[in-house]
């Protein structure tokens, strides 16, 4: 059991965060707290995505220069030569040596989406506040019923 928790630590963290977020979105009475829950919920999913791209002992996904690219600038070529030896020492291109960049890139988009959603939601909360003078759900409901 302990092994299961430690080996899949990242997934446990994402599940716990997600549940916290979901709880806040559904159970909290205050609109801003609901939005905080929403942000936690979205962030949990981002953490999940980022962690599936990670590998043990892998480095950032920038391919070492092999000196065969014709369209690079001279400066880049100079740097390339310096790195080339290291690259050759490590053997040819090894996908295991790099983390998977795709999930990270996807999450950049998801972050933008999350920010936009939060912005729209905040504007709506402000409108609710203007209309009913409160951001507590039960008070707003009371005022609607009146």
């Amino acid at each position: 059991m302990l092994d299961l928790i430690i080996a899949k630590f990242n997934y446990w963290v994402y599940i716990v965060l997600m549940m916290i977020g979901l709880y806040a979105m559904i159970a909290k009475n205050n609109y801003i707290k609901k939005l905080i829950g929403m942000t936690i919920f979205q962030t949990a999913i981002m953490l999940f995505y980022v962690s599936i791209g990670a590998k043990q002992g892998a480095t950032i996904p920038i391919i070492d220069h092999h000196g065969d690219g014709g369209d690079h600038g001279e400066a880049a070529e100079a740097v390339g030569h310096a790195v080339e030896t290291a690259a050759h020492a490590a053997g040819s291109l090894d996908p295991d040596a790099y983390v998977n960049p795709l999930p990270h890139v996807l999450m950049l988009t998801a972050i933008v989406v999350g920010v936009a959603t939060l912005g729209v939601a905040m504007a709506v909360v402000q409108k609710i506040h203007d209309q009913y003078g409160s951001i507590e759900e039960d008070e707003v409901l009371k005022r609607i019923k009146l």
């Binding site: 979105m25 209309q131 009913y132």
Partner: peptide, 21 residues
Amino acid sequence: AAFSCFNYIIMGTIGASFYLL
């Protein structure tokens, strides 16, 4: 409108997040 829209935002975000997951 604003009140019902807020509920829609919360539910819509949960829906989209589940899809993403």
